[in-house]
Simulated scan of single mutants.
Amino acid sequence: MFNSRIGLIAVILWVATAGVFSWFFVHGNTEVGSDGRNAIVLEAGERSLILGEMRSLLVATQGVVQGIQQNDMKHVAQSARAVGMASAVDVNPALMAKLPLEFKSLGMSVHHDMDDLAAAAESGKPAPELLGMLSTTMSKCVACHSAWQLKAN
């Protein structure tokens, strides 16, 4: 009888822990922001890391546009690949837990899009098609920046 109670308590605690983890995985550490957007609350270093990644995406985007303008598909591919999925593999799991699922999904899809853009440039797709792909990706950036802000503790 004693063992069955301990087992039941263990199962209840496991379910509660899994529920709390799932809630944080989906919602992250957020609050209403000062300008009405959703604020993701992070440590200062975590905020700086994400902002640095966003600047890298912006630099890569400029490199893609420059490469297309100069008809240098190797430069397009190198710029896009620099911020593809390989650049997103070393993210700290504790930081990822603080980010809402929608934010994570948008971010990962942008990295994936940049790999697709690099592959398209390498395969000789025409400039208008590459610009269309970049435009679609940039719409994700605009959507993210319209919905979220990063707030340091």
Rank of each mutant, 00 (worst) to 15 (best):
I12H: 13
G107L: 01
D72S: 12
R37Y: 08
I12D: 11
V83N: 05
D90G: 15
A86N: 11
T61I: 06
V26F: 14
D113L: 05
V89T: 11
M114L: 11
K98N: 00
L49T: 07
A60R: 12
D35M: 11
R47N: 06
Q66K: 15
Q78T: 11
D35Q: 12
I50W: 02
W14I: 13
T17E: 11
A94L: 09
R55T: 15
G63K: 10
A82W: 12
A44P: 12
A118T: 04
G63H: 08
V26C: 14
M96N: 05
M73Y: 13
L101C: 03
V59C: 02
A82E: 01
M73P: 02
E122R: 00
D35A: 14
S105E: 00
D90E: 15
A39E: 13
H27G: 08
A18H: 07
K74C: 03
G33S: 13
S79N: 05
H111S: 01
S22E: 10
D115T: 05
S56Q: 14
N92W: 04
V20Q: 10
A16I: 14
F25L: 08
V26I: 15
L58Q: 13
M108V: 03
N92Q: 13
G45F: 01
V110S: 03
A80Y: 03
S22F: 09
L99Y: 03
S22N: 15
L95R: 04
W23Q: 12
H112N: 05
A120Q: 06
V76F: 08
A18I: 07
L51C: 07
I12N: 14
F25R: 10
V76E: 01
R37K: 15
S109P: 00
K74A: 15
I50M: 10
S109W: 00
V64F: 12
V59K: 11
R81F: 11
Q66V: 10
A86R: 03
V41Y: 09
Q78V: 13
V83T: 08
D90H: 11
H111D: 00
S87L: 02
K104R: 15
V83I: 13
S105W: 06
L58A: 14
T61C: 04
H27T: 07
S109Y: 04
T61P: 06
K104E: 01
D115G: 00
V26W: 11
M85L: 04
P100G: 06
L51Q: 14
L117G: 01
Q62E: 12
A119R: 00
F25I: 07
G84F: 00
G36R: 10
V89M: 15
A39G: 12
A119E: 10
E102M: 07
F25S: 09
A44K: 10
M108A: 05
L58V: 09
H75F: 14
P93D: 05
